[in-house]
């Protein structure tokens, strides 16, 4: 618990968590009590921010090209995008973890094969590969998540493997092996504790990356479908009208920016705390 306190004492982490909490609370409240339906089309097209509506609430962020309330849609999208981010990090993180552990611990041919496989995934620039996979699977939210998850697996696999390699030869693990403790036990008891901190840090940073990815895929039309509110999709439609009405594109962009910023702040703070020497300053793959 003391550790948690120290972590929370890092300003960046505190700011990040506060921002996220505020956004999450607004989002939950919006979903619960908004008088506007996110897909209700009206004739009140492109009302500017803070325009009054027939309801008690004004259109805080204005309305979009189909007369829908941008505030409601933006905060519905918050939940969707965060869930997408979590799903992506969950899938690619756990697969990457397993691959990294196996490759690092077993070494030899298994390691070579798995890592070459990862190299191949990395050899094609991430966004292009994600586009290709999403296009093959067909445009939908689930497929976009799968595409991004596949592309980001090597990040975790490489990270985990390098940590495993660095602790595998340490005395206590050699001793544990000597004592005949099973591999699985060694991994869970002795290696995992070394992996978890860096893994969580990387996952936090990747969460922001995943959100940007999903938004970019939806932006070019390979992700979430109308009328589901999603930031990338909202921006891609909103920007077509940007010279007439800036709000349907800019507000989702700002909220998305704040969310990504919050995750970056937390991840950055965690990294400074857990790995002050930055041995594993892994570059985000754009």
């Amino acid at each position: 618990m003391g550790e948690l306190k120290t972590i929370l004492s890092i300003k960046r982490i505190r700011y990040g968590i506060t921002t996220l909490m505020i956004l999450a609370i607004i989002s939950i409240l919006t979903i619960l009590i908004t008088p506007f339906k996110y897909d209700r089309i009206t004739y009140n097209v492109h009302l500017p921010p803070l325009s009054s509506s027939d309801n008690i609430w004004p259109h805080i962020f204005g309305t979009d090209s189909l007369g829908r309330d941008v505030f409601t849609r933006t905060f519905y999208a918050f939940m969707l995008d965060i869930s997408c981010g979590l799903a992506i990090v969950g899938i690619s993180g756990s697969i990457g973890l397993v691959i990294g552990l196996i490759a690092g611990y077993l070494g030899g041919a298994v390691d070579a094969v798995l890592m070459r496989l990862m190299d191949i995934v990395i050899s094609i620039p991430g966004f292009i590969l994600a586009i290709a996979i999403a296009a093959v699977l067909g445009a939908s939210l689930v497929n976009a998540i799968i595409a991004v998850a596949i592309v980001t697996i090597p990040i975790y696999a490489r990270l985990v493997r390098s940590i495993v390699l660095s602790v595998k030869e340490s005395l206590f693990i050699l001793a544990a092996k000597e004592a005949g403790i099973s591999g699985v036990r060694i991994i869970f008891k002795h290696i995992m504790p070394h992996i978890i901190p860096m893994f969580i840090t990387q996952a936090t940073l990747e969460l922001s990356n995943a959100i940007l990815y999903i938004a970019a895929l939806s932006f070019i039309g390979l992700g979430v479908q109308e009328p589901t509110p999603e930031w990338g999709l909202m921006m891609s439609i909103g920007r077509r009208y940007i010279m007439e009405a800036w709000w349907p594109a800019v507000f989702p962009g700002i909220v998305m920016f704040l969310t990504v910023l919050a995750f970056n702040l937390i991840g950055d703070g965690l990294r400074d705390y857990l790995d002050p020497k930055k041995r594993f300053s892994i570059v985000k793959l754009i």
Partner: peptide, 14 residues
Amino acid sequence: SSTSILGFSFPTML
């Protein structure tokens, strides 16, 4: 340091 995090959190499409 904080503004530099701002910079790479901003969506390029916008």
